[in-house]
Design a protein around this nucleic acid. Structure first.
Length: 623
DNA sequence: TTAACGTTGTTAAC
DNA sequence: GTTAACAACGTTAA
């Protein structure tokens, strides 16, 4: 056996699949004698990151399915789960297993990019070659940013203009027919103390029923690198009906595309957020998030299905196919737009402070920081009423059935329709509660299976009119909006069963039902279901005026006033009509243009920006 | 400078 | 069921 032959450590992270995997293709192209498929069970994900049981369950199922597929390619192999921080574990594995090449799919998002840079530097120093390959997204986010003159993509049209200058996405690669075996894995001279998992507070402690045992050893309870269980994570069973895995993803894609007309005529704004059995959309987002489904697989499958449909119609019905961004293909583009936006903005993308594209609005319960820029817990900027509104929103007990049903569906299923996300996000922020999008994003982070750091923060900024979107006077109604889709209140009856017996007329406004109707429905408002927690008309008007004032002030997350904490006071000063008018007459558009220019230096050289933690980060990497 | 456009609003009047 | 008024944002193309 030649010692020159490649020994590959393949690190699965954003790609729980074998199909459509450029990174896997690159790894096998090295013609390795041994091939170790690993997953690092990062303690950061379990202790320091809010993550609900449904997402963890989906992930574990995806890992199990992947492991079975790997074994089908070679009976000697499987997914090896190594428990510990990748920053120490991956270099240690490279050493122990005599690895020549570390291969993985590139993850360009904030924390992951920082983590990968550390791992890359460490193993490269030890003589291991790193092969990191793009594959999660259709386009390289950095390439999009470069094409967009170094700026974050702030609209889908700017993203499309940039993407048109780059090579179009290729067809998906096939899964490999076979895999090389892994080498010896049994004798690893590891000690847990070299890979410490204790790292601050366990933010998910409240959810656990027993202690976490999956980190007791690097290779798991039985020393066989087995996939952890929810029990080892100290968690109760999942509540979602959504099953994880590549097999399930491809099955769902197949099933959805069987109805060619449905694919060809898909129009997102027309799909109903009130449908849930089955949902009105593909519900493929969780699979795309974990890479159970490749983005090129989805893209080309959709394109091919539409071509077939047009042929079926003798080529006559071309006009009936929907165009982006409302068509199925268009749904991928927004994800790409957020990837690119985050790529240009950097780590502050998930918060207001330091975020160059995010407007400063004096939300209640927004993140608070000390003088040196460190996050302070708990958050002081709000009173008991704000906290209570936030809790009620989270728990689904606001007294607005449409909002409550969605929030309960979110918690139970880990997935809600895109327009349902609009409804509850608008309600929490600019529509009714005037609570920071940062709070809402955290809740989605915890409960959504398909949570993605870029898309989640991006959508919350969009819905709160902090970035990407600015028509803050368009507020989603809690009755009129759902009624457009479903006058019978199916979603409410399902997820707020106490309201199930109300007549259609009152399903979205049960507090308006006469007492005898409430009695007949077996649900007295104020006793069995809450009264509306706020006056929706009054709060809506108040929100619009406050956002208007914040727009007039024109501050962004990276302005000095936001960084030094004086922005709220400025907005209070500007609250008088005179001040507001004066600022407004200066013109928001000019101000915005100026802010955008600050994102990149005029000479095209890398610009340094101050991060939230006070350290300096390269804001842009220009070629 | 103006007009049209932007992933997906609401309400009242006809 | 369709349309206009509501109150009015920022970007882009003409």
């Amino acid at each position: 056996m030649s010692s020159l032959q490649a020994r590959v450590l393949y690190w699965f992270r954003t790609d729980l699949r074998l199909h459509d995997s450029p990174a896997l293709h690159a790894a096998l192209g090295l013609n390795p004698e041994v091939f170790y498929p690993i997953w690092t069970w990062d303690p950061q994900y379990v202790f320091a990151h809010r993550v609900g049981v449904n997402r963890l369950s989906f992930l574990l199922e995806g890992m199990q399915d992947l492991s079975l597929s790997l074994t089908a390619c070679n009976p000697k192999t499987k997914l090896h789960v190594v428990r510990g921080p990748p920053q120490t574990v991956v270099p240690a594995l490279c050493k122990a297993w005599n690895i020549t090449h570390l291969v993985y799919e590139k993850d360009t998002a904030g924390y992951a990019a920082v983590r990968d840079a550390e791992v890359k530097a460490s193993v490269t120093k030890a003589g291991v070659q790193v092969v990191d390959v793009l594959g999660h997204s259709l386009y390289d986010p950095q390439a999009i940013v470069d094409q967009n003159k170094g700026n974050p993509t702030m609209s889908i049209s700017s993203w499309i203009t940039a993407s048109n200058k780059l090579p179009a996405p290729s067809r998906p690669l096939l899964p490999p027919p076979s895999l090389p075996p892994p080498g010896n894995t049994t004798l690893i001279p590891f000690s847990r103390k070299d890979h410490p998992v204790a790292n601050g507070v366990d933010v998910n402690e409240d959810d656990r029923e027993t202690v976490v045992t999956c980190y007791d050893t690097l290779a798991g309870r039985d020393g066989d690198f087995s996939i952890p269980t929810l029990e080892e994570l100290g968690l109760p069973p999942a509540t979602t009906s959504i099953r994880g895995g590549e097999t399930e993803a491809l099955k769902r894609l197949e099933a959805y595309c069987a109805d060619k007309a449905q694919v060809a005529r898909f129009a997102k704004p027309k799909t109903s957020p009130a449908e849930f059995d089955p949902p009105a959309t593909t519900q493929l987002s969780p699979y795309l998030k974990f890479g159970c489904l490749g983005s090129r697989e989805f893209l080309w499958r959709v394109r091919d299905t539409i071509s077939q449909w047009i042929m079926d119609q003798n080529g006559n019905k071309n006009d009936d196919t929907t165009k982006h961004p409302e068509n199925l293909e268009g749904q991928l583009l927004f994800r790409e737009m957020y990837f690119a936006a985050e790529c240009a903005v950097g780590l502050p993308f998930g918060q207001i402070r330091g975020n160059a594209i995010c407007r400063f609005i004096d939300w209640r319960l927004q993140n608070q920081y000390d003088a040196s820029g460190h996050r302070i817990h708990p958050r002081p900027l709000g009173d008991a009423e704000d906290e209570e509104r936030f809790s009620a929103w989270q728990d689904g007990r606001t007294g607005f059935p449409w909002i409550d049903a969605i929030m309960r569906q979110l918690r139970q299923e880990g997935w809600i329709h895109h327009l349902a996300r609009h409804s509850v996000a608008c309600f929490l922020t600019r529509g009714q509660c005037y609570i920071s999008w940062e709070r809402g994003a955290e809740v989605f982070d915890k409960w959504l299976i398909d949570w993605d750091p870029c898309a989640n923060a991006g959508n919350w900024m969009w819905l709160s009119c902090s970035a990407f979107f600015s028509m803050y006077y368009r507020v989603y109604g809690v009755k009129s909006f759902p009624e457009k889709f479903d006058k019978t209140g199916k979603l409410v009856r399902k997820f707020c069963p106490e309201l199930a017996k109300f007549p259609d007329k009152f399903i979205y406004t049960p507090h308006l039902a006469p007492v005898d109707v409430q009695e007949k429905a077996g649900c007295i408002i104020g006793r069995d279901y809450p009264f509306p927690m706020l006056d929706k008309k009054v709060e809506k008007e108040r929100c619009i005026q406050r956002v208007k004032a914040a727009y007039a002030l024109g501050l962004y997350g990276n302005d000095a006033a936001v960084l030094n904490g004086s922005a709220v006071a400025k907005l209070k000063n500007a609250d008088s009509p005179n001040a507001t008018n004066r600022e407004a007459s200066e013109g928001g558009a000019n101000h915005h243009r100026r802010k955008r220019q600050e994102c990149h230096s005029k000479d095209g050289l890398p610009t340094k920006r101050t991060r939230a933690d006070g350290t300096i980060k390269k804001y842009l990497v220009q070629k």
